[in-house]
């Protein structure tokens, strides 16, 4: 436990000393800029747009946080070979993987919370209701989607050897993750057996990120509070993360340095 915490703490420190916070400043500038740009519209419509756009920005920048954090880590591990001295210490390989994952989650959680506060301030400034539960819930879904992406990133980092390769893969997963469900629907309706099988494969390997997309649900009154849906998403997320981290640990424990 102590060893896992030590690794997590390091990854957290590393993210912030690497100015990953800059992503947040970018967010603030973006969000404020947008909310000023649309000040011509009527107040009702305006608050709604600020919220929609703000939530989209939170999910995007949370993903960017993972991409940056992963890049920094990979660079340090591969180019600077910092791992040898750590891996000979009395820490199990899976403990290292777990610590790293938790460290990344702490970084993202912190980032999302700060972004959420910025968004709430803007909403308030625009005359909306900052304590709208929808804002908080949608941000939580963003966090879950990034938690899934980060576990996929951990897996990629142990199977690919090049930093750019890993990052490109990760971005493809992000893009595909939003498409798979639509692809599957399309293939189920029109595709032949082979196409269907191929799409199914992608559907089950790549995380289904549309599950976390609250854009369509945010404006309907009840959908967000659906406990069944939340349970389904939580179950899916935990299962996916566990599978990814187990696979990552197995491959990592066979790795040579």
């Amino acid at each position: 436990m102590r060893r896992i915490a030590a690794v997590a703490e390091y990854i957290f420190k590393q993210s912030f000393r690497n100015k990953i916070l800059n992503v947040l400043i970018l967010f603030a500038v973006f969000a404020i800029g947008f909310s000023l740009a649309i000040s011509e519209l009527a107040r009702e419509a305006e608050v709604k747009m600020v919220v929609d756009f703000g939530l989209f920005a939170i999910s995007l920048f949370a993903f960017l946080t993972i991409v940056l954090s992963m890049t920094v880590q990979l660079f340090e591990e591969t180019e600077l070979k910092t791992l040898t001295l750590i891996i000979v210490k009395p820490i199990k390989r899976y403990e290292y993987i777990l610590g790293k994952y938790l460290g990344m989650m702490m970084t993202v959680l912190m980032n999302i919370l700060i972004m959420l506060v910025i968004l709430m301030l803007i909403v308030k400034f625009r005359g909306g209701e900052p304590w709208d539960i929808k804002l908080i819930e949608a941000s939580m879904y963003s966090f879950l989607s990034v938690a899934i992406l980060a576990s996929a990133a951990m897996f990629l980092s142990v199977v690919t050897t090049s930093v750019p390769g890993c990052i490109i893969f990760l971005i493809s997963i992000y893009a595909m993750g939003h498409l798979t469900i639509h692809l599957k629907n399309l293939a189920d309706k029109t595709g032949g057996a082979v196409v269907k099988a191929a799409v199914d494969l992608i559907y089950y390997v790549v995380p289904n990120l549309e599950l976390f997309n609250m854009k369509d649900k945010i404006n309907s009154s009840q959908a967000l509070f659906d406990l069944n849906y939340l349970g389904l998403v939580l179950g899916y997320t935990s299962l996916y993360i566990i599978v990814m981290l187990v696979l990552t640990s197995i491959i990592f424990s066979r790795k040579e340095f």
Binding site: R3, Y10, K13, N18, T82, L85, I86
Partner: peptide, 17 residues
């Protein structure tokens, strides 16, 4: 060594491990 740490922090990290 982990680049983003100070000397004492590196030692503390290793001591924890």
């Amino acid at each position: 060594f982990p680049k983003y740490l100070k000397v004492r922090e590196v030692m503390d990290y290793f001591a924890e491990l």
